[in-house]
Design a protein around this nucleic acid. Structure first.
Lengths: 240, 240
DNA sequence: GCTAAACCCTGACGTTACGTGAGAGTCAAG
DNA sequence: CTTGACTCTCACGTAACGTCAGGGTTTAGC
Protein backbone atom coordinates (compact mmCIF):
# COMPACT_ATOMS: atom_id res chain seq x y z
CA UNK A 1 0.00 0.00 0.00
CA UNK A 2 2.02 2.93 -1.24
CA UNK A 3 1.38 6.39 0.15
CA UNK A 4 2.05 9.79 -1.40
CA UNK A 5 3.03 13.11 0.11
CA UNK A 6 1.33 16.25 -1.16
CA UNK A 7 4.17 17.23 -3.43
CA UNK A 8 4.30 13.82 -5.04
CA UNK A 9 0.57 13.70 -5.51
CA UNK A 10 0.56 17.20 -6.90
CA UNK A 11 3.21 16.37 -9.46
CA UNK A 12 1.54 13.11 -10.39
CA UNK A 13 -1.82 14.74 -11.02
CA UNK A 14 -0.73 18.10 -12.34
CA UNK A 15 -2.56 19.91 -9.57
CA UNK A 16 -0.81 22.28 -7.17
CA UNK A 17 0.01 21.62 -3.56
CA UNK A 18 -2.16 24.57 -2.66
CA UNK A 19 -5.12 23.00 -4.40
CA UNK A 20 -4.72 19.81 -2.39
CA UNK A 21 -4.43 21.88 0.78
CA UNK A 22 -7.63 23.62 -0.24
CA UNK A 23 -9.49 20.37 -0.87
CA UNK A 24 -8.34 19.24 2.54
CA UNK A 25 -9.40 22.47 4.19
CA UNK A 26 -12.93 22.33 2.81
CA UNK A 27 -13.21 18.64 3.54
CA UNK A 28 -13.46 17.55 -0.07
CA UNK A 29 -10.39 15.32 0.06
CA UNK A 30 -8.80 14.65 3.41
CA UNK A 31 -5.64 12.55 3.36
CA UNK A 32 -6.32 9.28 5.12
CA UNK A 33 -3.20 9.62 7.25
CA UNK A 34 -0.61 12.01 8.58
CA UNK A 35 2.96 11.44 9.70
CA UNK A 36 3.88 12.13 13.30
CA UNK A 37 5.11 15.56 12.23
CA UNK A 38 1.87 16.38 10.45
CA UNK A 39 2.75 15.65 6.82
CA UNK A 40 -0.26 14.65 4.73
CA UNK A 41 -0.19 11.07 3.48
CA UNK A 42 -2.54 10.08 0.67
CA UNK A 43 -3.43 6.43 0.12
CA UNK A 44 -4.81 4.65 -2.91
CA UNK A 45 -8.41 5.27 -1.95
CA UNK A 46 -7.60 8.98 -1.73
CA UNK A 47 -6.13 8.88 -5.21
CA UNK A 48 -9.25 7.25 -6.55
CA UNK A 49 -11.39 9.92 -4.97
CA UNK A 50 -9.12 12.60 -6.37
CA UNK A 51 -9.54 11.10 -9.84
CA UNK A 52 -13.28 11.46 -9.53
CA UNK A 53 -12.96 14.97 -8.24
CA UNK A 54 -10.80 15.89 -11.19
CA UNK A 55 -13.22 14.30 -13.62
CA UNK A 56 -16.20 16.14 -12.21
CA UNK A 57 -14.20 19.35 -12.01
CA UNK A 58 -13.39 18.97 -15.70
CA UNK A 59 -17.12 18.94 -16.33
CA UNK A 60 -17.33 22.35 -14.73
CA UNK A 61 -19.05 21.37 -11.51
CA UNK A 62 -18.35 23.43 -8.42
CA UNK A 63 -16.49 21.86 -5.54
CA UNK A 64 -19.67 22.03 -3.52
CA UNK A 65 -21.59 20.09 -6.16
CA UNK A 66 -18.79 17.57 -6.41
CA UNK A 67 -18.92 17.02 -2.70
CA UNK A 68 -22.64 16.36 -2.97
CA UNK A 69 -22.20 13.94 -5.85
CA UNK A 70 -19.50 11.97 -4.07
CA UNK A 71 -21.23 12.18 -0.73
CA UNK A 72 -24.51 10.57 -1.60
CA UNK A 73 -24.16 9.13 -5.06
CA UNK A 74 -27.22 7.86 -6.86
CA UNK A 75 -29.91 10.22 -8.00
CA UNK A 76 -27.90 13.23 -6.95
CA UNK A 77 -25.34 12.86 -9.69
CA UNK A 78 -27.74 12.59 -12.61
CA UNK A 79 -29.67 15.51 -11.18
CA UNK A 80 -26.63 17.73 -10.85
CA UNK A 81 -25.45 16.79 -14.31
CA UNK A 82 -28.83 17.64 -15.80
CA UNK A 83 -28.82 20.96 -14.05
CA UNK A 84 -25.35 21.66 -15.27
CA UNK A 85 -26.26 20.84 -18.85
CA UNK A 86 -29.05 23.38 -18.63
CA UNK A 87 -26.76 26.04 -17.24
CA UNK A 88 -24.16 25.36 -19.90
CA UNK A 89 -26.72 25.59 -22.71
CA UNK A 90 -27.98 28.90 -21.48
CA UNK A 91 -24.52 30.29 -20.99
CA UNK A 92 -23.39 29.21 -24.43
CA UNK A 93 -26.47 30.68 -26.04
CA UNK A 94 -26.00 33.99 -24.30
CA UNK A 95 -22.33 34.23 -25.10
CA UNK A 96 -22.99 33.32 -28.68
CA UNK A 97 -25.49 36.14 -28.99
CA UNK A 98 -22.98 38.48 -27.41
CA UNK A 99 -20.23 37.33 -29.74
CA UNK A 100 -22.49 37.90 -32.71
CA UNK A 101 -23.19 41.42 -31.62
CA UNK A 102 -19.53 42.14 -31.01
CA UNK A 103 -18.55 40.75 -34.38
CA UNK A 104 -21.18 42.78 -36.16
CA UNK A 105 -19.99 45.87 -34.36
CA UNK A 106 -16.37 45.12 -35.13
CA UNK A 107 -17.27 44.57 -38.77
CA UNK A 108 -19.12 47.86 -38.95
CA UNK A 109 -16.22 49.51 -37.18
CA UNK A 110 -13.89 48.35 -39.93
CA UNK A 111 -16.29 48.72 -42.84
CA UNK A 112 -16.97 52.37 -42.08
CA UNK A 113 -13.27 53.07 -42.14
CA UNK A 114 -11.88 54.75 -39.08
CA UNK A 115 -14.91 54.80 -36.86
CA UNK A 116 -13.93 56.77 -33.81
CA UNK A 117 -14.24 55.44 -30.31
CA UNK A 118 -16.88 58.12 -29.83
CA UNK A 119 -19.08 56.70 -32.55
CA UNK A 120 -18.47 53.18 -31.38
CA UNK A 121 -19.57 54.02 -27.88
CA UNK A 122 -22.59 55.87 -29.20
CA UNK A 123 -23.65 52.88 -31.26
CA UNK A 124 -23.12 50.77 -28.20
CA UNK A 125 -25.32 53.02 -26.09
CA UNK A 126 -27.94 52.99 -28.80
CA UNK A 127 -27.96 49.21 -28.83
CA UNK A 128 -28.23 49.06 -25.07
CA UNK A 129 -31.00 51.62 -25.08
CA UNK A 130 -32.91 49.96 -27.87
CA UNK A 131 -32.80 46.57 -26.25
CA UNK A 132 -34.82 47.80 -23.32
CA UNK A 133 -37.82 48.41 -25.55
CA UNK A 134 -38.13 45.05 -27.26
CA UNK A 135 -38.46 41.46 -26.17
CA UNK A 136 -35.87 38.90 -27.18
CA UNK A 137 -38.16 37.54 -29.91
CA UNK A 138 -38.79 40.99 -31.31
CA UNK A 139 -35.05 41.72 -31.41
CA UNK A 140 -34.50 38.44 -33.17
CA UNK A 141 -37.19 39.27 -35.72
CA UNK A 142 -35.68 42.70 -36.27
CA UNK A 143 -32.32 41.11 -36.89
CA UNK A 144 -33.76 38.58 -39.32
CA UNK A 145 -35.64 41.35 -41.07
CA UNK A 146 -32.38 43.30 -41.35
CA UNK A 147 -30.64 40.32 -42.85
CA UNK A 148 -33.45 39.70 -45.25
CA UNK A 149 -33.41 43.18 -46.74
CA UNK A 150 -29.62 43.40 -46.74
CA UNK A 151 -27.23 46.09 -45.59
CA UNK A 152 -27.30 47.93 -48.90
CA UNK A 153 -31.04 48.44 -48.65
CA UNK A 154 -30.67 49.50 -45.02
CA UNK A 155 -28.29 52.25 -46.02
CA UNK A 156 -30.72 53.32 -48.71
CA UNK A 157 -33.54 53.51 -46.21
CA UNK A 158 -31.40 55.37 -43.72
CA UNK A 159 -30.74 57.92 -46.42
CA UNK A 160 -34.37 57.99 -47.48
CA UNK A 161 -35.87 58.84 -44.11
CA UNK A 162 -34.53 62.40 -43.79
CA UNK A 163 -35.60 63.09 -47.38
CA UNK A 164 -39.11 61.83 -46.74
CA UNK A 165 -39.37 63.74 -43.48
CA UNK A 166 -38.25 66.90 -45.24
CA UNK A 167 -40.88 66.43 -47.95
CA UNK A 168 -43.61 65.93 -45.37
CA UNK A 169 -42.44 68.96 -43.47
CA UNK A 170 -42.51 71.02 -46.66
CA UNK A 171 -46.13 70.03 -47.37
CA UNK A 172 -47.03 70.78 -43.79
CA UNK A 173 -45.47 74.21 -43.95
CA UNK A 174 -47.23 74.88 -47.27
CA UNK A 175 -50.45 74.17 -45.36
CA UNK A 176 -51.45 71.24 -47.58
CA UNK A 177 -54.40 69.25 -46.28
CA UNK A 178 -52.99 66.02 -44.75
CA UNK A 179 -55.84 64.13 -46.39
CA UNK A 180 -54.98 65.41 -49.87
CA UNK A 181 -53.52 63.02 -52.43
CA UNK A 182 -49.87 64.27 -52.37
CA UNK A 183 -49.66 63.90 -48.57
CA UNK A 184 -51.45 60.54 -48.70
CA UNK A 185 -48.79 59.42 -51.19
CA UNK A 186 -46.11 60.48 -48.74
CA UNK A 187 -47.95 58.61 -45.98
CA UNK A 188 -47.98 55.48 -48.12
CA UNK A 189 -44.20 55.75 -48.58
CA UNK A 190 -43.83 56.37 -44.83
CA UNK A 191 -45.93 53.34 -43.98
CA UNK A 192 -43.97 51.25 -46.46
CA UNK A 193 -40.67 52.13 -44.81
CA UNK A 194 -42.05 51.41 -41.36
CA UNK A 195 -43.43 48.05 -42.43
CA UNK A 196 -40.21 47.16 -44.15
CA UNK A 197 -38.49 47.62 -40.81
CA UNK A 198 -41.08 46.12 -38.49
CA UNK A 199 -42.06 43.31 -40.83
CA UNK A 200 -45.65 44.30 -40.05
CA UNK A 201 -45.21 43.45 -36.37
CA UNK A 202 -47.44 45.63 -34.22
CA UNK A 203 -45.41 44.97 -31.08
CA UNK A 204 -42.27 46.26 -32.71
CA UNK A 205 -44.05 49.37 -33.93
CA UNK A 206 -45.33 49.94 -30.40
CA UNK A 207 -41.82 49.52 -29.03
CA UNK A 208 -40.54 52.14 -31.41
CA UNK A 209 -43.24 54.58 -30.30
CA UNK A 210 -42.35 53.92 -26.65
CA UNK A 211 -38.71 54.46 -27.42
CA UNK A 212 -39.35 57.81 -29.04
CA UNK A 213 -41.64 58.83 -26.21
CA UNK A 214 -39.08 58.09 -23.50
CA UNK A 215 -35.71 58.75 -25.09
CA UNK A 216 -34.89 62.31 -26.06
CA UNK A 217 -31.58 61.09 -27.48
CA UNK A 218 -33.45 58.85 -29.91
CA UNK A 219 -35.74 61.70 -30.98
CA UNK A 220 -32.78 63.92 -31.61
CA UNK A 221 -30.96 61.26 -33.58
CA UNK A 222 -34.03 60.62 -35.76
CA UNK A 223 -34.74 64.30 -36.37
CA UNK A 224 -38.07 63.72 -34.71
CA UNK A 225 -40.47 66.66 -34.92
CA UNK A 226 -43.75 66.37 -32.96
CA UNK A 227 -45.61 68.59 -35.43
CA UNK A 228 -44.53 66.49 -38.42
CA UNK A 229 -45.38 63.35 -36.46
CA UNK A 230 -48.89 64.61 -35.75
CA UNK A 231 -49.39 65.79 -39.34
CA UNK A 232 -48.33 62.53 -41.00
CA UNK A 233 -50.22 60.63 -38.31
CA UNK A 234 -53.48 62.13 -39.53
CA UNK A 235 -52.70 61.11 -43.09
CA UNK A 236 -51.74 57.58 -41.97
CA UNK A 237 -55.01 57.13 -40.08
CA UNK A 238 -56.83 58.17 -43.24
CA UNK A 239 -55.06 55.31 -45.03
CA UNK A 240 -56.46 52.91 -42.42
CA UNK B 1 -28.62 71.10 -14.88
CA UNK B 2 -30.45 68.47 -12.92
CA UNK B 3 -28.62 66.31 -10.43
CA UNK B 4 -29.47 62.84 -9.13
CA UNK B 5 -28.92 61.19 -5.80
CA UNK B 6 -27.71 57.59 -5.73
CA UNK B 7 -31.11 56.11 -5.11
CA UNK B 8 -32.66 58.04 -7.97
CA UNK B 9 -29.87 57.10 -10.33
CA UNK B 10 -30.07 53.50 -9.24
CA UNK B 11 -33.78 53.32 -9.92
CA UNK B 12 -33.44 55.11 -13.24
CA UNK B 13 -30.74 52.74 -14.49
CA UNK B 14 -31.83 49.51 -12.84
CA UNK B 15 -28.52 49.20 -11.03
CA UNK B 16 -28.27 48.97 -7.25
CA UNK B 17 -27.08 51.66 -4.90
CA UNK B 18 -24.32 49.34 -3.82
CA UNK B 19 -23.09 49.05 -7.37
CA UNK B 20 -22.84 52.80 -7.70
CA UNK B 21 -21.01 52.93 -4.39
CA UNK B 22 -18.66 50.31 -5.73
CA UNK B 23 -18.01 52.22 -8.94
CA UNK B 24 -17.26 55.25 -6.83
CA UNK B 25 -14.96 53.32 -4.52
CA UNK B 26 -12.83 51.95 -7.34
CA UNK B 27 -12.79 55.28 -9.12
CA UNK B 28 -14.75 54.13 -12.14
CA UNK B 29 -17.55 56.63 -11.69
CA UNK B 30 -17.15 59.34 -9.11
CA UNK B 31 -20.12 61.64 -8.65
CA UNK B 32 -19.09 65.10 -9.76
CA UNK B 33 -20.46 66.64 -6.57
CA UNK B 34 -21.46 65.98 -3.00
CA UNK B 35 -23.88 67.79 -0.73
CA UNK B 36 -22.55 69.41 2.44
CA UNK B 37 -23.61 66.30 4.32
CA UNK B 38 -21.78 63.98 1.96
CA UNK B 39 -24.62 62.76 -0.26
CA UNK B 40 -23.44 61.81 -3.75
CA UNK B 41 -24.77 64.04 -6.52
CA UNK B 42 -24.52 62.80 -10.10
CA UNK B 43 -24.67 65.29 -12.96
CA UNK B 44 -25.50 64.78 -16.61
CA UNK B 45 -21.90 64.05 -17.58
CA UNK B 46 -21.86 61.34 -14.91
CA UNK B 47 -24.98 59.81 -16.39
CA UNK B 48 -23.43 59.75 -19.82
CA UNK B 49 -20.38 58.02 -18.45
CA UNK B 50 -22.56 55.56 -16.62
CA UNK B 51 -24.36 54.77 -19.87
CA UNK B 52 -21.06 53.88 -21.47
CA UNK B 53 -20.03 51.82 -18.51
CA UNK B 54 -23.27 49.88 -18.72
CA UNK B 55 -22.87 49.33 -22.42
CA UNK B 56 -19.34 48.02 -22.09
CA UNK B 57 -20.36 45.95 -19.10
CA UNK B 58 -23.09 44.38 -21.21
CA UNK B 59 -20.38 43.31 -23.63
CA UNK B 60 -18.76 41.38 -20.82
CA UNK B 61 -15.76 43.61 -20.22
CA UNK B 62 -14.31 43.77 -16.72
CA UNK B 63 -14.54 47.01 -14.79
CA UNK B 64 -10.79 47.34 -15.11
CA UNK B 65 -10.97 47.10 -18.89
CA UNK B 66 -13.83 49.56 -18.97
CA UNK B 67 -11.78 52.03 -17.02
CA UNK B 68 -8.98 51.65 -19.53
CA UNK B 69 -11.31 52.12 -22.50
CA UNK B 70 -12.87 55.24 -21.05
CA UNK B 71 -9.56 56.52 -19.76
CA UNK B 72 -7.65 56.74 -22.97
CA UNK B 73 -10.08 56.10 -25.78
CA UNK B 74 -8.78 55.55 -29.28
CA UNK B 75 -6.79 52.47 -30.10
CA UNK B 76 -7.38 51.01 -26.69
CA UNK B 77 -11.04 50.30 -27.25
CA UNK B 78 -10.69 48.44 -30.53
CA UNK B 79 -7.84 46.49 -29.02
CA UNK B 80 -9.77 45.47 -25.93
CA UNK B 81 -12.80 44.55 -28.02
CA UNK B 82 -10.68 42.39 -30.28
CA UNK B 83 -9.16 40.66 -27.33
CA UNK B 84 -12.55 40.11 -25.84
CA UNK B 85 -13.90 38.62 -29.05
CA UNK B 86 -11.04 36.15 -29.01
CA UNK B 87 -11.69 35.20 -25.41
CA UNK B 88 -15.37 34.77 -26.06
CA UNK B 89 -14.77 32.55 -29.08
CA UNK B 90 -12.46 30.31 -27.14
CA UNK B 91 -14.76 30.13 -24.17
CA UNK B 92 -17.76 29.28 -26.33
CA UNK B 93 -15.84 26.63 -28.19
CA UNK B 94 -14.64 25.01 -25.00
CA UNK B 95 -18.04 25.06 -23.36
CA UNK B 96 -19.62 23.67 -26.49
CA UNK B 97 -17.20 20.76 -26.47
CA UNK B 98 -17.94 20.23 -22.81
CA UNK B 99 -21.67 20.34 -23.41
CA UNK B 100 -21.32 17.80 -26.19
CA UNK B 101 -19.48 15.45 -23.92
CA UNK B 102 -22.01 15.88 -21.16
CA UNK B 103 -24.91 15.28 -23.50
CA UNK B 104 -23.32 12.15 -24.91
CA UNK B 105 -22.71 10.89 -21.40
CA UNK B 106 -26.24 11.73 -20.34
CA UNK B 107 -27.56 9.96 -23.42
CA UNK B 108 -25.50 6.87 -22.71
CA UNK B 109 -26.58 7.04 -19.10
CA UNK B 110 -30.21 6.86 -20.21
CA UNK B 111 -29.72 4.49 -23.13
CA UNK B 112 -28.04 1.86 -20.99
CA UNK B 113 -30.98 1.90 -18.65
CA UNK B 114 -30.17 2.44 -14.99
CA UNK B 115 -26.48 3.14 -15.22
CA UNK B 116 -25.22 3.43 -11.69
CA UNK B 117 -23.31 6.42 -10.43
CA UNK B 118 -20.37 4.06 -10.08
CA UNK B 119 -20.33 3.27 -13.76
CA UNK B 120 -20.88 6.88 -14.69
CA UNK B 121 -17.92 8.00 -12.61
CA UNK B 122 -15.81 5.22 -14.04
CA UNK B 123 -16.64 6.28 -17.58
CA UNK B 124 -15.83 9.80 -16.53
CA UNK B 125 -12.46 8.78 -15.16
CA UNK B 126 -11.79 6.80 -18.29
CA UNK B 127 -12.51 9.84 -20.41
CA UNK B 128 -10.27 12.02 -18.28
CA UNK B 129 -7.52 9.42 -18.37
CA UNK B 130 -7.80 8.82 -22.07
CA UNK B 131 -7.65 12.50 -22.88
CA UNK B 132 -4.14 12.75 -21.48
CA UNK B 133 -2.81 10.42 -24.17
CA UNK B 134 -4.15 12.13 -27.27
CA UNK B 135 -3.98 15.55 -28.79
CA UNK B 136 -7.14 17.55 -29.41
CA UNK B 137 -7.02 16.68 -33.11
CA UNK B 138 -6.62 13.00 -32.38
CA UNK B 139 -9.56 13.06 -30.00
CA UNK B 140 -11.63 14.81 -32.64
CA UNK B 141 -10.67 12.19 -35.20
CA UNK B 142 -11.54 9.40 -32.80
CA UNK B 143 -14.91 10.99 -32.22
CA UNK B 144 -15.56 11.33 -35.94
CA UNK B 145 -14.47 7.78 -36.49
CA UNK B 146 -16.88 6.71 -33.78
CA UNK B 147 -19.70 8.59 -35.42
CA UNK B 148 -18.84 7.16 -38.81
CA UNK B 149 -19.04 3.54 -37.73
CA UNK B 150 -22.10 4.09 -35.53
CA UNK B 151 -22.91 3.06 -31.99
CA UNK B 152 -24.31 -0.31 -33.05
CA UNK B 153 -21.04 -1.30 -34.66
CA UNK B 154 -19.15 -0.04 -31.62
CA UNK B 155 -21.12 -2.35 -29.38
CA UNK B 156 -20.42 -5.19 -31.77
CA UNK B 157 -16.72 -4.49 -31.66
CA UNK B 158 -16.72 -4.16 -27.88
CA UNK B 159 -18.27 -7.62 -27.76
CA UNK B 160 -15.90 -8.98 -30.37
CA UNK B 161 -12.66 -8.06 -28.62
CA UNK B 162 -12.90 -10.49 -25.70
CA UNK B 163 -13.88 -13.27 -28.10
CA UNK B 164 -10.91 -12.56 -30.32
CA UNK B 165 -8.55 -12.32 -27.37
CA UNK B 166 -9.83 -15.64 -26.05
CA UNK B 167 -9.27 -17.31 -29.42
CA UNK B 168 -5.73 -15.98 -29.61
CA UNK B 169 -5.06 -17.12 -26.08
CA UNK B 170 -6.38 -20.60 -26.92
CA UNK B 171 -4.02 -20.90 -29.91
CA UNK B 172 -1.16 -19.67 -27.76
CA UNK B 173 -1.88 -22.23 -25.07
CA UNK B 174 -2.15 -24.99 -27.68
CA UNK B 175 1.38 -23.98 -28.67
CA UNK B 176 0.44 -23.06 -32.23
CA UNK B 177 3.16 -21.25 -34.17
CA UNK B 178 2.24 -17.55 -34.31
CA UNK B 179 3.31 -17.50 -37.95
CA UNK B 180 0.91 -20.32 -38.89
CA UNK B 181 -2.13 -19.54 -41.01
CA UNK B 182 -4.81 -19.80 -38.28
CA UNK B 183 -2.96 -17.32 -36.05
CA UNK B 184 -2.22 -15.02 -38.99
CA UNK B 185 -5.94 -15.03 -39.70
CA UNK B 186 -6.58 -13.97 -36.12
CA UNK B 187 -3.90 -11.28 -36.49
CA UNK B 188 -5.68 -9.95 -39.59
CA UNK B 189 -8.94 -9.69 -37.65
CA UNK B 190 -7.05 -7.99 -34.80
CA UNK B 191 -5.45 -5.50 -37.14
CA UNK B 192 -8.80 -4.83 -38.77
CA UNK B 193 -10.40 -3.95 -35.46
CA UNK B 194 -7.51 -1.70 -34.49
CA UNK B 195 -7.60 0.13 -37.80
CA UNK B 196 -11.34 0.50 -37.60
CA UNK B 197 -10.82 2.34 -34.35
CA UNK B 198 -7.72 4.37 -35.18
CA UNK B 199 -8.74 5.11 -38.77
CA UNK B 200 -5.21 4.06 -39.66
CA UNK B 201 -3.70 6.91 -37.66
CA UNK B 202 -0.28 5.92 -36.32
CA UNK B 203 -0.32 8.63 -33.66
CA UNK B 204 -3.55 7.29 -32.21
CA UNK B 205 -2.18 3.75 -32.20
CA UNK B 206 0.92 5.02 -30.40
CA UNK B 207 -1.25 6.81 -27.87
CA UNK B 208 -3.13 3.60 -27.17
CA UNK B 209 0.13 1.75 -26.58
CA UNK B 210 1.32 4.50 -24.22
CA UNK B 211 -1.98 4.32 -22.40
CA UNK B 212 -1.72 0.58 -21.88
CA UNK B 213 1.88 0.92 -20.81
CA UNK B 214 1.17 3.52 -18.13
CA UNK B 215 -2.32 2.75 -16.92
CA UNK B 216 -2.86 -0.50 -15.06
CA UNK B 217 -6.56 0.33 -14.82
CA UNK B 218 -6.79 0.40 -18.61
CA UNK B 219 -4.98 -2.93 -18.92
CA UNK B 220 -7.32 -4.49 -16.42
CA UNK B 221 -10.38 -3.10 -18.13
CA UNK B 222 -9.23 -4.41 -21.52
CA UNK B 223 -8.30 -7.87 -20.20
CA UNK B 224 -4.78 -7.12 -21.32
CA UNK B 225 -2.38 -10.09 -21.08
CA UNK B 226 1.31 -9.41 -21.82
CA UNK B 227 1.87 -12.94 -23.11
CA UNK B 228 -1.06 -12.69 -25.54
CA UNK B 229 0.14 -9.25 -26.56
CA UNK B 230 3.61 -10.55 -27.34
CA UNK B 231 2.23 -13.61 -29.17
CA UNK B 232 -0.13 -11.70 -31.43
CA UNK B 233 2.53 -9.03 -31.89
CA UNK B 234 4.79 -11.55 -33.59
CA UNK B 235 2.00 -12.60 -35.93
CA UNK B 236 1.19 -8.94 -36.70
CA UNK B 237 4.81 -8.17 -37.57
CA UNK B 238 4.74 -11.13 -39.91
CA UNK B 239 1.78 -9.49 -41.66
CA UNK B 240 3.94 -6.40 -42.22
C1' DG C 1 27.21 14.72 13.54
C1' DC C 2 26.33 18.86 10.93
C1' DT C 3 24.57 21.77 7.42
C1' DA C 4 22.16 23.12 3.34
C1' DA C 5 18.59 22.09 0.13
C1' DA C 6 14.27 20.53 -0.55
C1' DC C 7 10.13 19.59 1.33
C1' DC C 8 6.26 20.29 4.53
C1' DC C 9 3.19 22.85 7.85
C1' DT C 10 -0.31 26.61 9.18
C1' DG C 11 -2.04 31.09 8.77
C1' DA C 12 -3.47 35.04 6.20
C1' DC C 13 -4.23 38.31 2.59
C1' DG C 14 -5.47 39.10 -2.58
C1' DT C 15 -8.42 38.25 -6.54
C1' DT C 16 -13.98 39.90 -9.08
C1' DA C 17 -18.04 42.57 -8.63
C1' DC C 18 -20.67 43.36 -5.94
C1' DG C 19 -24.64 41.44 -1.75
C1' DT C 20 -25.81 42.09 2.74
C1' DG C 21 -26.05 43.90 6.90
C1' DA C 22 -24.62 47.27 11.00
C1' DG C 23 -24.55 51.56 13.12
C1' DA C 24 -25.24 56.26 12.48
C1' DG C 25 -26.29 60.74 10.21
C1' DT C 26 -29.74 63.61 7.01
C1' DC C 27 -33.97 65.27 5.21
C1' DA C 28 -38.90 66.24 4.32
C1' DA C 29 -43.54 65.64 5.97
C1' DG C 30 -46.93 65.62 9.53
C1' DC D 1 -40.50 66.88 17.35
C1' DT D 2 -41.03 62.56 15.69
C1' DT D 3 -41.22 59.26 12.02
C1' DG D 4 -39.96 57.13 7.89
C1' DA D 5 -37.26 57.20 3.89
C1' DC D 6 -32.95 58.06 2.39
C1' DT D 7 -27.97 58.38 2.79
C1' DC D 8 -23.27 57.65 4.64
C1' DT D 9 -19.07 54.60 5.83
C1' DC D 10 -17.15 50.46 7.35
C1' DA D 11 -16.66 45.59 6.91
C1' DC D 12 -17.42 40.76 6.13
C1' DG D 13 -18.84 37.06 2.60
C1' DT D 14 -18.67 34.92 -2.01
C1' DA D 15 -15.25 30.61 -5.40
C1' DA D 16 -11.22 28.48 -5.94
C1' DC D 17 -7.43 28.85 -5.27
C1' DG D 18 -2.34 32.02 -5.86
C1' DT D 19 1.11 33.83 -3.29
C1' DC D 20 3.83 35.05 0.29
C1' DA D 21 5.53 34.69 5.40
C1' DG D 22 7.47 32.44 9.19
C1' DG D 23 8.76 28.27 10.93
C1' DG D 24 9.40 22.96 11.41
C1' DT D 25 11.14 18.21 8.92
C1' DT D 26 13.61 15.23 6.11
C1' DT D 27 17.43 13.89 3.42
C1' DA D 28 21.78 14.02 0.99
C1' DG D 29 26.45 15.14 1.18
C1' DC D 30 30.48 16.22 3.87
Amino acid sequence: MRVWRVGELAEATGLTVRTLHHYDAIGLLRPSARTASGYRLYGEADIERLQRIRSLRALGLSLEEIRECLGRPGGSLAEVIGLHIGRLREEIEQKTRLLGRLERMAARLEADGGVSAEEFLETLEAMTMVEKYFTAEQLERIRQQGERVGSARIKEVEAEWPVLIAEVKAEMEKGTDPLSEPVLALARRWKGLVEEFTGGDHGIAAGVRELYRNEPAAREWAGFDPAVWEYIGRAMRALG
